[in-house]
Amino acid sequence: MDTWTADELTRIGAAEELQVSSTRADGTLRPYVTIWVVRSGDEIYIRSAYGATNPWFVRAAASGTGRIRAGGVEKDVTFADAADAPHGAIDAAYHAKYDRYGPAIVGSVTGADVEATTFRLVPRD
């Protein structure tokens, strides 16, 4: 399976936060880290608020796989490259969902500077 169900998209997209865990070399999961998540179209995206050196991001990029929990959905995922993602739409989704927290924090996950720290979450069986 490499697509989200309509129910999963709705539940994850509506969740205030997402817990993300990357896979270790031995196949076990690292501890979960809580981050923001947005839905754009039929895709789910996450970004590193503190750049490419944020430990959770480094581990996810290195492993390429992990597990997420959000909105009552728990799923194994691939952390897919999002270079060709609709970054303007992703920014708009972050603003719509999280602007109430203020421009400084929302600014940490929007704009051209964070495009390189964007993952598209792809569900795995």
Rank of each mutant, 00 (worst) to 15 (best):
K75S: 13
V106L: 03
T5M: 07
R100A: 10
A60L: 11
S40M: 04
E8Y: 11
W36A: 10
A61S: 13
D76F: 06
A25R: 12
D125Y: 02
P55Y: 10
F57D: 03
V73F: 08
A52S: 14
L121Y: 04
E16G: 13
P55K: 01
A85W: 05
D81H: 04
V77D: 01
A60Y: 01
D113L: 04
V73D: 07
S63F: 02
A112I: 11
G102E: 04
G102L: 07
P55C: 12
Y101G: 10
A83L: 08
S21N: 01
A80E: 10
T34V: 15
D2G: 06
S21V: 07
T53L: 11
I35M: 12
D26R: 07
W4S: 00
R11H: 11
P123F: 06
D81F: 05
T28C: 01
S40K: 02
R39E: 08
R39V: 12
H87P: 02
V77T: 06
V77R: 03
G13D: 09
A60P: 01
D81E: 12
A93I: 10
D91Y: 08
E74A: 14
F57C: 06
M1G: 13
V33R: 13
R59H: 15
G27N: 11
A104I: 11
G71N: 08
G41V: 10
R30H: 13
W56H: 01
A89N: 06
V109Q: 03
Y45P: 03
D81T: 05
A104V: 14
A6S: 15
V20C: 09
T65Q: 14
G13Y: 13
T23A: 03
A116Q: 14
A25K: 10
A96T: 11
E74C: 03
A6R: 14
E17G: 00
S22F: 07
V106S: 03
G107W: 08
R100H: 15
A80G: 01
D91F: 07
D125P: 13
T3R: 15
S21P: 03
W4V: 07
Y98V: 01
T28D: 11
A60D: 06
P55R: 12
S21C: 09
K75P: 00
A61T: 13
D42N: 15
